[in-house]
Nucleic acid binder design. Structure first.
Lengths: 236, 236
DNA sequence: ATTAGTTCTAGTCAACTTGACTATAACTAA
DNA sequence: TTAGTTATAGTCAAGTTGACTAGAACTAAT
């Protein structure tokens, strides 16, 4: 219903269609430096408009699920992933986002842990791309990704979002690498360390990460809770 | 269409209906202290559900306007106001927000200047309320207002939002009063002043506010631009 | 076994910011 | 002229931040 086959009068009468999309971030080691970098999974459009181009995973909203559930389901269906962090990004509703119909997209953004991301389904029509090398995407999806990146950098500076890109245990240097990858600049190890150590939500464990070619760093654990979105306010 | 008269099967088949609502903030002098306080206009529900209760102004989205335009129009139609500041708040899409149908509401929040707010239409079915004394509202609107207040406080702490609640010219003490009203605590005048003076977006004018019972304070002007929402990114 | 190389970790120091507070300036009203 | 009030500038201690130094603890090579 309300597809491009409807005539103009019908389209004018029909309510704007409502879609859910998700910008999914995960860390993967860069092929050159081996350092972690930001990656995003995209799906190939198999029909018009923008057939053949890459786009954000998304789909319609069903009647039995909340917006967040729809985003979560969509993510699972297209990539097989369960997000560690999921938050509403923005509702995009410009008049000419799609050439064939009026679509309002409620977009979520997600962070998944690298262990999950390594398992992610990849196929002819689902591929991961470096966040800074996406090329031209379908619809207004480049602008959406830009905004999601802006939001990620912002949340990182404030708050407790970096840990959702890492596993349960991590070293302080790994956290620093996340910041360096997302903010795209180097940070002083000693000063960064001092800041994290003054954060009560980061807990020392007795364990150390073995296997490096140097002094083994202590492992830490994140004990804080996510933010206070309307969707997440009931989490005690 | 898709009203409460539709049977269950029809409601399941129909797409969720899409509405735009707006939380509008303006300053008005408190009746007791005379100091500025936050007020919000509400409209009375004239039909079921929640007939007789107060609710946020809102309405459907038409095909010829963007989400922001719809919010702006709605605001003008219900209160006669033109917002000085308008930003998307959140898309609320819980399953049981309305007892009769599935509604997804894209909510905006707005700031209007006191000169505008004084002219605002008020009638049997449109009234202004103190933001901290709203009573029970229709739907999930209490939660929405709470979230809007949280966002306002947040934006205030960071950024350049306070000036949109004031006129073009203002004294530094007036800015402080805005902060005190919104954050609900007193601030040291001298320290607050020092901070504002170090902000490049606040410009001294040569003029002074006359008419007080004390030394006339200098008038300032705000020269900064609003934020960088997706909706507002093209504003140069 | 020793040494070089690496990262981890703790600490110092100056610059800057913040909160509490003092003091003077400039106006009005009595 | 004086009291009352707010505007405005400044001081001081405490805390935070960025640049930097240095030793600790491990691995890998000699």
């Amino acid at each position: 219903m309300y597809t491009s086959s409807a005539n103009v009068a019908e389209r004018q009468a029909a309510p704007p269609s409502l879609a859910i999309s998700t910008v999914i971030f995960a860390l993967r080691p860069s092929e050159k430096s081996g350092r972690p970098t930001l990656w995003i999974p995209l799906v190939r459009r198999i029909r018009e408009p923008f057939k053949g181009l890459w786009a954000l995973p998304g789909g319609p909203l069903t009647h039995t699920e909340s917006l967040q559930d729809a985003a979560s389901r969509n993510l699972r269906e297209t990539t097989g992933l369960a997000p560690e962090y999921l938050e509403q990004l923005y509702a995009f509703g410009g008049l000419h986002r799609s050439p064939t119909q009026r679509v309002v997209s409620i977009v979520y953004w997600a962070l998944v842990q690298p262990t999950e991301a390594a398992l992610a389904d990849e196929s002819e029509n689902v591929k991961w791309f470096r966040a800074d090398r996406l090329g031209d995407l379908a619809f207004d999806h480049n602008a959406i990704v830009d905004y999601a990146l802006w939001r990620l950098r912002n949340k990182l500076a404030y708050g407790s979002v970096a840990y959702h890109l890492l596993g349960e245990y991590f070293t302080l240097a790994q956290v620093r690498e996340v910041y360096e990858a997302v903010l795209d600049r180097e940070l002083d190890p000693a000063n960064f360390r001092r800041q994290l150590k003054s954060t009560p939500e980061i807990e020392e464990t007795g364990e150390y990460l073995q296997g490096g070619k140097h002094r083994p760093p202590r492992l830490y654990r994140f004990t804080g809770r996510p933010g206070l979105d309307p969707d997440n306010r009931s989490t005690p």
